[in-house]
Amino acid sequence: MEKAFMLVVVSEEKKVDYVSYFLKDEANYWWESTHALEEEEVITWCRFKKIFLDKYFWRNMQTQMELKFFELKQEGMTVGEYEKKFTELARFVGDYMDTDEKRVKRFQQGLKPWLRSRVAAFELATYAEVVQKAMVIEGESDQNLKEKESEK
């Protein structure tokens, strides 16, 4: 829904109305009873998200996803696969990844050591630059290995 709200301009006051319209079955029943019990007459979008996530996205699951993110290493993945997993898990750690600088630092930390040292030498400032440079270096390394094998 956040993605849809970026595409279509929806005022903060209307977001809860739009989202609640799309709730079905059990989620709709939950919302009707929760809304009736809420003390605030108008429930803000921020409040709605909190109570919705408390109901459908349990804290232990949030903690597990955070741990997966902080333990994430490239290891047997390509840079592209690692970046995809990194992006998937980064959404669960909010404040930890709220700047490009933090994303760069954490992404580089998870790269394979030989790749991390080469990327770090460039002192790149943006996440996009780090990912791109890591992919280029990895691609060149793979190409060099193939050439050496064909020479043998």
Rank of each mutant, 00 (worst) to 15 (best):
A120L: 10
F22T: 13
R116Q: 11
T126I: 02
A125E: 14
F92H: 15
S141M: 07
V104L: 14
L67F: 03
K102C: 05
Y29E: 14
E140A: 11
R47G: 02
S20F: 02
W31K: 13
L67Q: 09
K152L: 10
L115G: 03
E149F: 07
E140P: 00
L72M: 05
A128I: 02
G76L: 09
W30K: 10
L145T: 03
E88K: 08
K112Y: 06
Y29W: 03
T99G: 11
A121E: 12
E88Y: 07
I51L: 13
E149R: 14
E140L: 08
R118F: 01
E75I: 05
E66H: 02
V136R: 02
K148R: 13
V10S: 08
V79H: 10
E101L: 09
K84R: 10
R91Y: 04
F69Y: 11
I43C: 05
E81A: 11
F70Q: 06
R47C: 01
L111W: 06
I43V: 15
K15W: 00
A36T: 06
Y127E: 03
A121I: 01
A125P: 03
R103P: 06
A4N: 02
M65A: 07
E41G: 12
K24W: 05
D100I: 06
Y96C: 09
V8S: 03
A120R: 14
G76E: 11
D17E: 14
S117F: 04
F122T: 08
E75W: 02
T63P: 00
K49Y: 01
K112E: 15
L111C: 05
M65P: 07
Q143T: 14
K73H: 06
V10N: 02
K133M: 13
W58G: 00
V119F: 06
W114G: 10
E151C: 09
K50S: 12
L23V: 06
F5C: 04
E149S: 10
Q64Y: 04
V10I: 11
